[in-house]
Amino acid sequence: MTAVGTPPVEASASAVPGTGDARRRLRAVFLLTGTTLALAVVSVVAAGVGAYHIPPGQVAASLLDVIGIQGVGPLPDQVASTVLWDVRLPRVVLAITVGAALGVAGAMMQGIFGNPLAEPGVIGVSSGAAVGAIVVIFTGITVLGHWTIIASSFVFGLATTLFVYVFARSRGRTEVVTLLLTGIAVNAIAGAAIGLMTNFSQDAEIQTITFWQLGSVATATWSKVAVIVPCLLAGLIVIPIYARRLDLLSLGEGPARHLGVDVERMRLVLIAALALLTSAAVAFAGIVSFIGLVVPHIIRMVTGPGHRVLLPASALGGGLLLLAADLLARTAAAPAEIPLGVVTAALGGPFFFYLLYRTRAKQGGWS
């Protein structure tokens, strides 16, 4: 029982102006800091684990030595240094970059459509981008050199995104069920196209197509990293510009327009950004599903829906999750390697079932 004249503890806390905001800011700082530290630790561990083991201390010492900090610990020998810098670190950086791209693309898509179940893979964008990459592999087109695959993947990914967006719009709003059903249809058509090209491909082409379907960062090189990193940075540029506007869009299109947001222009810019992020990720890692769905939800559970924290945290969380999944993929059944897309699907599938159940339970059904 509460004493007379003494307000309950909850009421006292809520009565302090700005207490809730301060707590959210504190959680955001802890989340961003903790995710960054975890990403650094997992990166060092992942760079050392493999057939040729390199102690974490030597990995850290080699990384610090490159930036001019010497004498921290023993450096790896010549063989270990070659394995570290030519094989392991490109794979680590590519996994982080692909995961960051998919994580922030998923957060953008959920904000654009106002749909917590939206994700590039779920609504067919990843499959569309994969078709673009496989068309280049199947036809052997090399007009733009190393950029041919990513250019084709980008065009197909953007076209798929725009098609799904337009088809899911009705009477000025995006219908959730139509969005998901359109994604199912797009995935089916993309799967048919991939299957048709696989059927008429040579053995070498079939192996490459299988890579795109299952996902992997095993073929990482510094040249691939040099191509995908600018795409990631180009996609991330929109975060400080549109994060606040996405928060306003969550109030509804009408209120957002009254507050000065050009909704259609913002959606087109963000659609182009997430298509670039997704297509770049698919171009170098194949179809890696559920990262863009799982990560934003986990971040949202910790810090809330504010996009100024959600978007950068989703990039960090996506990189961390995909790097951990890749580490699991190449160590769980060593010396064999499990396809990366299989690992992420095994983790994300049950989580998606949970989201479906939770959403249906909160809305009392879909109708």
Score class of each variant (00 low, 15 high):
Ala133Cys: 12
Gly99Tyr: 07
Leu94Ala: 01
Arg88Asp: 13
His307Arg: 03
Pro335Gly: 01
Trp366Phe: 01
Ala332Trp: 08
Glu264Met: 12
Ser152Leu: 11
Ile189Arg: 06
Gly114Pro: 02
Pro255Cys: 02
Pro255Trp: 01
Arg265Val: 04
Trp147Pro: 01
Gly365Asn: 02
Val295Pro: 00
Val261Arg: 06
Leu328Cys: 11
Ala60Met: 11
Glu175Ala: 12
Asn115Leu: 00
Leu94Met: 03
Ala256His: 09
Val227Asn: 02
Ala107Leu: 06
Gly73Trp: 14
Ile239Glu: 05
Val131Pro: 05
Pro339Lys: 05
Asp21Leu: 13
Val164Pro: 05
Leu249Ser: 03
Leu328Phe: 13
Pro76Ser: 08
Met1Pro: 11
Ser81Thr: 14
Thr210Ile: 06
Pro56Gly: 02
Gly183Thr: 09
Ala256Val: 14
Val92Lys: 06
Met109Cys: 08
Ala285Trp: 09
Thr139Val: 12
Ile241Asn: 08
Pro296Asn: 12
Ala334Glu: 04
Leu196Thr: 14
Ala101Leu: 03
Val72Leu: 12
Trp366Ile: 01
Ser201Phe: 08
Ala61Cys: 14
Phe154Arg: 00
Ala80Gly: 13
Leu274Thr: 08
Gly319Arg: 03
Ile237Cys: 09
Ile271Val: 07
Gln363Ile: 11
Val72Trp: 08
Ile134Val: 06
Tyr354His: 07
Pro8Tyr: 01
Ala275Thr: 11
Ala192Leu: 09
Ala334His: 05
Phe113Glu: 03
Phe154Met: 03
Ala192Asp: 11
Ala190Phe: 14
Leu276Asn: 11
Val269Met: 05
Ile228Tyr: 10
Ala273Cys: 15
Ser289Phe: 11
Asp262His: 15
Ala272Tyr: 10
Tyr165Ile: 09
Asn199Met: 14
Ile206Ser: 08
Thr6Ile: 15
Leu26Pro: 04
Ile338Cys: 01
Phe353Met: 04
Leu180Trp: 06
Tyr357Glu: 12
Ala190Ser: 13
Gly348Lys: 08
Leu316Thr: 08
Pro339Ile: 06
Arg245Leu: 05
Asp86Asn: 12
Leu37Lys: 03
Ala95Gly: 13
Val93His: 01
Pro76Phe: 00
Ala159Val: 14
Glu10Gly: 15
Ala283Cys: 04
Val155Trp: 02
Tyr354Arg: 01
Leu268Thr: 13
Ile287Glu: 03
Phe163Asn: 02
Leu355Ile: 13
Gly48His: 07
Ser314Thr: 09
Gly348Ile: 13
Arg267Val: 15
Leu64Thr: 03
Val16Met: 15
Arg91Ile: 09
Ala61Glu: 15
Gly57Met: 13
Leu274His: 10
Val217Gln: 07
Glu119Asp: 15
Leu277Ala: 05
Asp65Leu: 02
Asp65Glu: 11
Ala168Trp: 13
Val261Lys: 04
Leu310Ser: 05
Ile239Val: 09
Arg25Cys: 06
Val122Ser: 04
Ala204Pro: 07
Tyr242Trp: 00
Ala105Phe: 05
His146Cys: 05
Val98Asn: 12
Leu214His: 01
Leu340Ile: 09
Leu321Lys: 07
Gly71Ile: 04
Gly318His: 04
Asp77Ala: 06
Ser14Arg: 15
Gln213Met: 15
Ile137Asp: 07
Ser201Glu: 11
Thr97Asn: 07
Pro339Asp: 07
Thr33Ile: 10
Leu268Gly: 12
Ala159Met: 09
